[in-house]
Design a binder for these strands. Structure first.
Length: 596
DNA sequence: GAGTTTGAAACT
DNA sequence: CAGTTTCAAACTC
């Protein structure tokens, strides 16, 4: 038995850490400093669960030799069964970062079901329970077992996935791992480190992770939850061996499925899915009595008509390309593209994010600028409050020097082609005496200021004066010494608070838009699909409503970012009345007023 | 709620 | 490794 690593997650066991050094001891703790049990062999690991998870299970004392701390009873916890790994570190998936790891289904079948069943409309719901009858919940058929947790309150028969049958369960774990050392590893590659490489947000909010093994769907078109990819809300990838796949970006069937209000139009959506699948099957001939259900049938379609039955997914664009020969409406969609109403055509559904026309790149830029300004203001405020006398003692010379230094730093940072590397280089280079000569900005501020493209930032800060003022406001007011960390914390708190306000407003806008869209879908049987195409707010009614957010100004006369801009402005206004009311705001003098 | 469909897992 | 069977969830009626 080799060592294995497990990282605690708020809800489920994250097997991605198996990629870490096998010898590395697990040192993770829960938010409540709950230790992670880390030994060889199958283990019982206490895991703090989110409120949606199951009630706490009893631990076998002998199985938690390192668990010396008493679990707080008020905390709902789940004991995740650590699976023995047999030297699988080499083939482990990318590592993840706890802070940015997205909600990830360890097993698409198991985890995504949990996710979707637990949280709906923001209301936590009880975790799905298995109904195993013949597997004793000791095979991967069992969601609980596959998820590495004990069955608890399930509807299973002859369940052995519990503490009482821990030996049997352990055997089953080992047997499973013997068959497939990666059995308990996440099937969805969702490494944050590689997030920018293999994951990205599509226009409709879909996360482009990859299923490690890929699905093998034949009949569902990968548009039903039978499909692990679909269930995990990811697109099929080149790893998939699915037939007649419609779960690729640009797929109008998929867009039709996702279009509209997910929660309130499931029947509609499913009907759309069925129509899409049925239509595709009919056109492809797959729906006709198949000679065999096996994949040999693929060969019948190869080159015969329209379908590449194997690799017909968006990433490869193979299927899209082939299918487009029969679907001219899609033929103009180049590569992995975001759906475009103009190219899809007036009679086709096209899904777009409800926020698609609310958020523009320049809005993000402006938001960053606003937050940077707030960061500077916060620093200034704190500096004034905490260290007024000290700052005066230090004199203006040093402050000026630091300001100019910081200005240069920021400019260098933001002029760099690779901001991330630049930051890293700066951080590493500041290990020595250099660090004492500079006044580093708050990490959050640095991230805000540097984690955006040069062009965006340059556009946000339209003049060198702005840049200088920003940088000086951001850091030059900071006192030296131990107050720095405290200041950073407060600085980041304020910035994050403002950012949260922005997101809340964005959510509100999206919800309103969503409500309008869904009512549109439900309210009429003859939905103008053209109106639904590309922009869910292209009907007169919704446009008018949307315009209400623009203070009555005709949307056609507005930049599309207007709503977001107003949102940011509202945040600024709010902040003026709250946390930063005491702060001398540069924009009051018109110097560093955010471009919002 | 029963029956069917589906595809992953398990098995041969 | 491919084909077949088993299994439980998803889905349909």
């Amino acid at each position: 038995m080799t060592d294995e690593n497990v990282r605690m997650d708020a809800c489920v066991l994250d097997f991605t850490v198996f990629s870490q050094s096998p010898a590395a001891a697990v040192t993770s703790v829960t938010e409540q400093n709950q230790p992670v049990v880390m030994t060889s062999g199958a283990q019982v690991v206490p895991v703090k669960l989110t409120p949606v998870t199951r009630p706490q299970l009893q631990l076998q004392p002998q199985q938690q030799p390192q668990q010396s701390q008493t679990q707080p009873q008020q905390q709902q916890q789940q004991h995740v069964l650590l699976m023995p790994m047999k030297g699988t570190a080499a083939a482990a998936p990318p590592t993840t970062h706890p802070s940015i790891r997205p909600p990830k289904p360890d097993s698409p079948r198991a985890r995504s079901r949990q996710t979707t069943s637990e949280v709906k409309d923001g209301t936590p719901k009880k975790q799905k329970q298995c109904n195993c009858k013949h597997s004793r919940c000791l095979k991967l058929y069992c969601e609980c077992f596959a998820s590495g947790i004990y069955c608890d309150g399930c509807n299973c028969n002859n369940c052995h996935n519990n503490v009482e049958n821990e030996p049997a369960r352990r055997e089953a774990v080992e047997a499973t791992l013997e068959r497939n050392p990666h059995a308990f590893r996440p099937k969805i590659a969702s490494s944050p480190h590689g997030a920018r490489d293999n994951k990205e947000e599509t226009g409709d909010g879909l996360v482009l992770a990859k299923h490690n093994k890929g699905c093998h769907c034949k009949k569902s078109g990968c548009l039903k939850k039978y499909c692990e990819c679909f269930q995990a809300n990811i697109l099929c990838s080149e790893n998939c061996k699915c037939m007649d796949c419609k779960n690729f970006e640009g797929s109008e069937e998929r867009q039709a499925l996702f279009h509209g209000d997910h929660a309130n139009n499931m029947a509609y959506l499913q009907q759309a899915a069925n129509a899409a699948i049925t239509g595709a099957i009919g056109s492809s001939g797959y729906g006709s009595p198949p000679v065999t259900k096996k994949r040999k049938a693929q060969e019948l379609f190869f080159g015969s008509t329209l379908k590449d039955p194997v690799h017909r997914h968006g990433q490869l664009q193979q299927g899209n390309h082939i299918k487009s020969s029969a679907l001219p409406s899609l033929s103009s969609i180049p590569g992995p593209c975001v759906s475009n109403a103009a190219t899809v055509g007036p009679s086709k559904f096209t899904y777009r994010s409800l926020l698609a026309d609310l958020i523009q790149p320049q809005d993000l830029k402006e938001l960053c600028s606003v937050l940077v300004v707030y960061s500077g203001e916060a620093a200034k405020m704190l500096a004034d409050e905490k260290d007024a006398s000290q700052k005066q003692a230090e004199g203006q010379t040093e402050a000026s020097l630091a300001s100019s230094t910081q200005e240069r730093d920021m400019h260098d940072c933001c002029s760099s082609g690779d901001q991330g590397e630049k930051i890293g280089m700066e951080e590493s280079s500041l290990d020595g005496a250099d660090v004492s000569k500079r006044r580093p900005m708050s990490p959050g501020t640095l991230a805000l200021m540097c984690d955006e493209s040069d062009a965006m930032f340059a556009a946000a800060v339209t003049s060198p004066n702005d840049l200088a003022t920003l940088s000086s406001n951001t850091s030059s007011q900071l006192p030296h010494g131990q107050g720095m960390t405290e200041t950073y914390g407060e600085q980041e708190r304020i910035v994050l608070t403002k950012f949260r306000d922005c997101l809340n407003r964005l959510i509100t806008l999206g919800e309103i838009k969503e409500t309008k869209c869904s009512s549109m879908v439900r309210g009429t049987d003859s939905v103008d699909q053209q109106g639904m195409t590309g922009n869910v707010f292209t009907t007169a009614e919704t446009r008018n409503q949307h315009d209400s957010f623009n203070n009555g100004v005709s949307r056609s006369s507005l930049p599309q970012s207007r709503t977001t801009t107003q949102m940011f402005s509202a945040v600024v206004t709010t902040a003026n009345n709250t946390a930063l009311s005491k702060v001398h705001r540069p924009d009051e003098n018109g110097d560093v007023k955010p471009k919002v």
